[in-house]
Design a protein around this nucleic acid. Structure first.
Lengths: 249, 249
DNA sequence: ACCTGAACACCGTTCAAGT
DNA sequence: ACCTGAACACCGTTCAAGT
């Protein structure tokens, strides 16, 4: 226990320093890292800091602002831009670095999805990605589409909608489930039977990232431009452009 | 008001029929459509149905199960598979149809993201997509990667992380914000200046979808196979394969 | 078999007061 | 200036009872 009577001077390394906005958000990150986002509530956070819940509200406006702070802390973990490399390597490096930061905080994807506005730190990062495309000579139009195509992937994650269920450990149950699924979901079972080793998330992430970057490179080199005339000469996006035309009419 | 003394027989079209699982989930969808997901709580839902909150629990196990029901109702809105068309058209049709269903229910993306398991209806839909790839002769391995690369796009949405803020209507405020952003986020401003007309979500969705489908087609035609030897002969995914190799070693 | 009323546990937050 | 204690509003859900 900390002995308050020990000295009237401030301890050199106080274990219970006065609160600050940074101390609160760091504690929130630690709590989420250890116990998950659902365990992060103002009462538990206050207890971790040895303080009464309402003490937090002198340093963060409300819980939403606190969650924004947590995102900013993660964005600061992303490695800075490598000026020297070519656009594709620079993008890959930045995005895979963002992914590393996110992997250290498993709650981050869900939190990012729930945010309704971007902080200055977030916009700084996005601005740097836009800059990579523009500096590489991408048209502003293609740059815009590229950013949309990346979506959450620019933050190093793709939402795994409807995660594949973990198969039961009991071999008897497993066999029963396999038999049942083979009848109702034959294609899924056939596909799964090919992936003997468990699915490698990092590989799947880079596979799709490269699929997008390679496609964007091809469009850029084949002279994608912002004028509709040039667009229609590009056979790759014929159908998408057709859709836009129809809507404009 | 409904007159209960009017007749002892059941009314032909009862306005206050007895509850059922379907009636509850339909009311939940209507409430979410009209007032948003955050307005959907058991008390409000019960009031809409003219019943006390606890009456709902005889028909749905809990709120989570109710949310699962709502997803299933949407999945049933997706148009069935067109057997005759080629794989790319079939996929586009199915996915754009899923998108239409989702656009009718703006709360659906957030709800889909939050689900932790897939219902049989959900698996049926995913199985049909896997089947399209396999029937087109895609290797099981490439099919697997393709499904991951599609991600949430197979449900007709991409998560718009950090949505772009709506610019202020007051021209003076707008000018001030523009000046500020031009200094700190020059690339974003430059990119945005090219997109005069407001951003077309449908176009961006189809742009990225076609980028992925075209890339997958190219890999399929160039003989992507599941053996590592063949993989390294495909120059397009050199870096991703390199990453996987390193991990395996 | 189905619905009701009261109550509990939990959580974000306001308010008036303490030092 | 910073922290505290009690309380309020809100929400999912349990429980024992009603018909």
């Amino acid at each position: 226990m900390y002995d308050v009577h020990m000295s009237s001077r401030k301890p050199i390394a106080p274990t219970r320093a006065t609160l600050s906005r940074e101390r609160v958000s760091l504690a929130a990150i630690r709590l989420a890292d250890e116990s998950g986002l659902e365990a992060l509530n103002m009462r538990a956070l206050a207890q971790d800091l040895g303080v009464v819940p309402m003490a937090l509200y002198k340093h963060v406006a409300n819980k939403e602002k606190l969650l924004d702070e947590m995102i900013d802390a993660i964005v600061r973990e992303i490695e800075p831009l490598e000026e020297s490399s070519d656009w594709k390597s620079a993008l890959r490096h930045r995005i895979l670095s963002a992914r590393q930061a996110l992997l250290r905080h498993s709650w981050a994807p869900h939190l990012i999805e729930s945010r309704t506005s971007a902080s200055p730190e977030v916009l700084d990062y996005m601005d740097s990605l836009v800059g990579i495309f523009i500096q590489a000579g991408f048209s502003l139009d293609l740059t815009h589409h590229a950013m949309h195509a990346l979506g959450s992937r620019m933050w190093g994650f793709i939402q795994e909608v409807f995660p594949t269920p973990t198969p039961p450990t009991d071999p008897e149950l497993l066999a029963a489930m396999f038999a049942q699924w083979s009848v109702r979901y034959p294609n899924i079972i056939e596909m799964a039977s090919a992936a003997q080793q468990s699915c490698d998330d990092q590989f799947e992430f880079e596979f799709a990232l490269d699929l997008l970057l390679d496609g964007l490179e091809r469009m850029h080199l084949s002279g994608w431009s912002s004028t509709p005339k040039d667009r229609s000469e590009n056979p790759q996006l014929e159908s998408a452009v057709r859709g836009k035309r129809k809507k404009k009419r």
